[in-house]
Design a protein around this nucleic acid. Sequence first.
DNA 1: TAGATTGTTAATCGATTAACAATC
DNA 2: TAGATTGTTAATCGATTAACAATC
Lengths: 215, 215
Amino acid sequence: MSEIVSEEPEIDTNTVPDIVVGRLPLYLRALSEMALADKHFTSSQELADALGISSAQIRKDLSHFGEFGKQGTGYAVLGLRDHLRNILQLDREWPLIVVGAGHIGSAVANYTGFAERGFRVVAVFDNNPARVGDGAGTHTVYAMNDLNAIVEKYKVRHAMLTVPAEAAQTVAEQVIAVGIRAILNYAPTTLAVPVGVHVEYIDPVLHLQRMTYYL
Amino acid sequence: MSEIVSEEPEIDTNTVPDIVVGRLPLYLRALSEMALADKHFTSSQELADALGISSAQIRKDLSHFGEFGKQGTGYAVLGLRDHLRNILQLDREWPLIVVGAGHIGSAVANYTGFAERGFRVVAVFDNNPARVGDGAGTHTVYAMNDLNAIVEKYKVRHAMLTVPAEAAQTVAEQVIAVGIRAILNYAPTTLAVPVGVHVEYIDPVLHLQRMTYYL
DNA sequence: TAGATTGTTAATCGATTAACAATC
DNA sequence: TAGATTGTTAATCGATTAACAATC
């Protein structure tokens, strides 16, 4: 039997399916809730029940990143939470900008849920001079001219777009040009972006329409 | 050759995968955009390019519901749009309630995008007496006591929950009890609901966290 | 007619689940 | 020890894609 140089059981990050990565924040959220309730241990079954998915899926998903549990015992809530934070790079605070200071933009900029979970809104932008300066809640609204300076100053990589659908593609290009690499688009339209830039979408109407089919 | 009574090529609605139904509103949105641009015809390839998916998927998805195109020509924009509206039961206006009159609730209640796409916010509710009566924008805020009366009066089936995470499960049960069958939950927590009730989720932080993994 | 594009089939690809040895 | 639960394998299930005959 020839000796085989054992290969590292390497964690090839490119190999983890997007759909698995997409569920990790959900696991993290459930664990944070448990931590808040002072729960010390949990199991894949308990997490599965809380999230309405299968325990096998949770174990399989986690197995892409390492071994975090103990047979017979399950997972330490704080331990697994911190592992997930680490995997998702959420063990730091990320600066965030909002582009578009209308109704949704202002609401989004003042939503306290971002700061509570690691994202800090550092600026709100609008191309309408009438909106610049006056507050979107506690935030001052900046002109688009200031985009580059602020993104560089705070090393911002995340942007939320709360502009009209017609403006979204142009605005996306503007923020990408200054270094934004993750866009959360609230405008009801699909964006075309270069590889290396990530886009996710929020369109509440799509959700309502989906459910209406079943009524 | 024995004669076979031809079976209806029946459109078994239970047979359409949820994931397919979930894409229909996206197709509808793209078609509405084309209609607005006065485009008369389109193809599965053109739709696919606009949405960043494959043309085969679009044709396959549509084939669950009928034949809407013409070889060599493609699809009539208005025709396909109306077919999709019909399939999704969006050829009527649906009343909608918002529960929770805080920052997000007020923003959501005043978002004009709902009315533009077939959903009309008929009432906003809050359990805090201090918020009842004064406006959430153009809406009057009702007490939870009025929930049943208003849901019955307008025959409401859709609710958006914009309450704190801790309150979401209880509020969900309240709205289900008065007849709501579709819930769009903005609270960052998973809901347990009986069969026959549909829930979709909006948690912007989850989207930001997903993208952060790749940065 | 020639070119374009559908609707559909079959193949491929990928994700989920069931099951269980290992072990705390 | 007995019971519980992990991590992993293999099987199943389902979704996507490629390809093309039909036909406008």
